[in-house]
């Protein structure tokens, strides 16, 4: 992502998420539907220096579930589970014990995922924290939309922009139908 303002916006999102939950790390992934991959778009904490831009399959793992279901998820005791996304965890050089993930949505579309790794214990496994995560994810999703829209403005030909607009209108109409 070359757009400095967009990068700053998403970086602030993951920095705040990490601070809110006292977490070891927080990430925003963008869902690349065409490639069926999730892309690290911003990272705070563990992995910050090398993960941005890295891709992994969107059809597996907890983040994959969040994309598919459109629902947040909170999991603990991951380090005791030897199968937990072992390859991915190894590639990110960090195996968390706990993970919270929430979808970043626009209407009924999932644009990406907000993930929080190893939140402090009082933040774990609490429905209130799940709510807090989901609440913050709405703000993160708005930021992600801004970033995506800015990217569309600079890279997409006018016809594609028009089609994009029509698709958005269709979603809006369907969402507001009685």
């Amino acid at each position: 992502m070359d757009d400095q303002l967009s990068a700053e916006l998403l970086q602030s999102v993951v920095d705040v998420a990490r601070a809110m939950f006292g977490a070891a790390a927080s990430s925003v992934f963008v869902f690349d539907e065409k490639a069926d991959e999730l892309v690290f778009q911003a990272v705070s904490g563990q992995g910050e220096s090398f993960l941005v831009g890295r891709r992994f399959p969107a059809s597996s793992g907890i983040a994959g579930w969040v994309v598919a279901s459109g629902e947040p998820m909170v999991v603990n005791d991951l380090s005791k589970n030897t199968a937990f996304d072992r390859d991915l965890a190894a590639s990110t050089q960090y195996v968390p014990d706990a993970l919270m993930a929430a979808p970043l949505t626009h209407g009924d579309r999932v644009l990406g995922v907000l993930e929080v790794l190893d939140p402090v214990p009082q933040s774990r496994s609490s429905l209130d924290e799940l709510d807090l995560l989901a609440l913050f994810a709405r703000q993160a999703a708005a930021a992600l939309r801004v970033v995506i829209d800015r990217a569309v403005d600079t890279t997409m030909p006018k016809r594609s922009q028009a089609l994009h607009l029509v698709a958005s209108l269709q979603e809006l109409l369907e969402a507001s139908a009685p």
């Binding site: 629902e71 998820m73 909170v74 603990n76 005791d77 589970n81 199968a83 937990f84 774990r124 496994s125």
Partner: peptide, 21 residues
Amino acid sequence: PGQDVSVAWLGGGTIRSTGNS
């Protein structure tokens, strides 16, 4: 019960998870 429930997970193991699911 849906908070911090011990659940089966991939690889024959278990994790703990939270949610209406």
